[in-house]
């Protein structure tokens, strides 16, 4: 009987070894991942956006404004040697700013609504849909008081001995008269080396 159990046990192990590893785990997106490279990653993005948001909401022009200013966040300009998801970056930055300044600033979200609103306006004007709800009958999009820009620059090197990436993320808050209200920079430097069998 013991032999049979042992036999079955071995079979179980063998069968289990055939199955694919489907294990999934939740990880903190703000922490370095296990499969990190030297490029820009989610935690870099999150950290820079967080710091920028904290700094911006403390600006006198924002914190002391009588009327909450409207800010347009432009897509990140990438001049580095690391492709980035510009949309994700913009969304993260806007989310962080909203978190820190729900009542101190308002944000234009043309990326999210412009096309749909324009289409709806066309339908209203054509009489295809009725005015109603809480929306005004005519559409006039809001303009902004400030533009928030982000530019990613970098210096990258790679040799057979390893690779290195330095990134500078520069945020600028510019008003409607092209005056620079605020600028802040965040630096990231990473070095890494691939295993010898890949070099």
């Amino acid at each position: 009987m013991k032999k049979q159990l042992l036999f079955l046990g071995l079979g179980g192990v063998l069968l289990a070894s055939c199955a694919q590893d489907d294990s999934v785990r939740y990880v903190d997106p703000g922490q370095p991942g296990r499969v990190a490279g030297t490029g820009i990653e989610s935690q870099d993005l999150a950290a820079a956006a967080q710091k920028a948001a904290q700094s911006i909401v403390n600006l006198p022009a924002i914190a002391n404004a009588v009327r909450p200013p409207v800010i347009l966040i432009t897509p990140v300009t990438n001049r580095s040697a690391s492709p980035v998801d510009a949309t994700l970056y913009t969304t993260k930055l806007r989310g962080a700013l909203m978190q820190y300044s729900p009542d101190k600033a308002r944000f234009l979200a043309r990326d999210a609504s412009w096309n749909t609103n324009q289409q709806e306006q066309g339908l209203r004007q054509a009489g295809a849909v009725a005015d109603g709800g809480t929306a005004a009958s005519g559409r006039q999009g809001a303009t902004y008081d400030y533009i928030l820009t982000a530019e990613l620059q970098g210096i990258s090197t790679a040799t057979g001995k390893g690779q290195s990436d330095y990134f500078l993320i520069a945020f600028k808050l510019v008003n409607y008269q092209d005056l620079l209200i605020w600028e802040n920079q965040y630096e990231i430097k990473k070095e890494g080396r691939e295993a010898g069998v890949y070099r």
Binding site: V76, T77, N78, R79, S80, A81, S82, P83, V84, A86, S156, T157, A158, T159, G160, Q163, R199
Partner: peptide, 26 residues
């Protein structure tokens, strides 16, 4: 493909990274 999508920043990043991948021995 980034060029085709008119995402010129990421296109440039890819071409730069492509050069970085072209490592050689001593």
């Amino acid at each position: 493909l980034y060029l085709q999508d008119h995402d010129y920043g990421n296109a440039a990043a890819c071409f730069k990274r492509s050069e970085l991948e072209d490592i050689t021995g001593d």
